[in-house]
């Protein structure tokens, strides 16, 4: 079983890229367009891989940040959805991994020395402080409620009792994956593509691949928390969240940073209150 999971994990970047293809196709359908072929992201990434890299700065972080961004997300995929790494307190490890990936993303923007990248990083940092805390609180609620110490041990359908945490989690993944309404960190009309403005070639390949894998990771994480080890519920939750993301991306305008910050803050408050409730109910306190 472990070897099968390992094999799936190796294939997971491809799955993430395919998911991106479906994402684009879904949005195109919502806009009554035909849309690109599902495998288009593969072509895009292949093109980037073969492109020459333009160095705007000889900074060490500028060179390595995109690569480590992708690697950290890939390590995150070991925990969810494949449960290859499953040990006590693995949820804390996962939190470290998500914070680390966000930190590398922010570093990539700052070290690129572009005003757009820097502004995007500043925005991301401001939001990151809040949404990573909200993610931690919501994740903890699920773990505490299930009385377990691993993510794989979360009780199936515990989401019914933890609705506020679930809402906070959904808000977090929307912000983290830059779904429109909350995509101030990559607002094209304001700051161009944001962090990736100065990147090209293989560095951009890693940044793009990292973003695609991040979407896959977070959809899997939230689905795993919602569904526990029930594969059917996992799939249903995954598809519903995926469609909700695409729907929000296609049909809503973007908030300004100020409003986004307030929304994320509301998610944080919700998650913390729910965590306190769960701790109270489960008798930990």
């Amino acid at each position: 079983m472990q070897s099968v999971m390992l094999f799936l994990w190796v294939l997971s970047p491809a799955a993430a890229v395919l998911l991106e293809g479906f994402y684009r196709k879904t949005i195109a359908r919502m806009q009554s367009r035909k849309g690109p072929p599902v495998v288009q992201p593969f072509y895009d990434l292949r093109k980037l891989w073969n492109k020459r890299r333009v160095k705007t700065k000889n900074d060490w972080f500028f060179l390595i940040s995109p690569f480590f961004y992708t690697v950290t997300v890939l390590i995150g995929l070991l925990i969810v959805p494949f449960h290859i790494l499953s040990f006590e307190y693995d949820f804390i490890f996962l939190l470290y991994i998500t914070v680390l990936s966000s930190a590398f993303y922010v570093l990539a923007g700052i070290s690129s020395d572009s005003p757009y990248g820097m502004l995007a990083s500043m925005r991301e940092m401001r939001l990151m402080v809040i949404y990573e805390t909200a993610l931690a609180a919501a994740l903890l609620s699920f773990v505490v409620y299930s009385g377990t110490l691993t993510i794989s041990g979360v009780k199936p359908l515990s989401v019914i009792y933890l609705l506020p945490s679930a809402v906070a989690l959904i808000a977090v993944i929307f912000v983290e994956n830059k779904v429109t309404q909350f995509d101030t960190g990559a607002a094209e009309s304001e700051i161009l593509p944001g962090v990736s403005t100065e990147y090209s070639g293989k560095a951009l390949f890693f940044l793009d691949l990292g973003e695609m894998m991040k979407r896959f990771l977070f959809l899997s994480l939230v689905s795993a928390l919602f569904a526990g080890d029930n594969m059917l519920f996992f799939a249903v939750s995954f598809v519903i969240l995926f469609m909700a993301m695409a729907y929000s991306d296609a049909t809503t305008p973007r908030f300004t940073l100020h409003v986004t910050t307030w929304y994320v803050l509301a998610a944080l408050i919700l998650a913390v209150i729910d965590l306190l409730r769960v701790i109270w109910v489960s008798g930990w306190a």
Partner: peptide, 16 residues
């Protein structure tokens, strides 16, 4: 205008 505020769907619809 819709494109500027990130509402790409209405951008498509208006241009159609």
């Amino acid at each position: 205008m819709m494109h500027e505020i990130g509402l790409e769907t209405l951008f498509d619809y208006f241009w159609r």
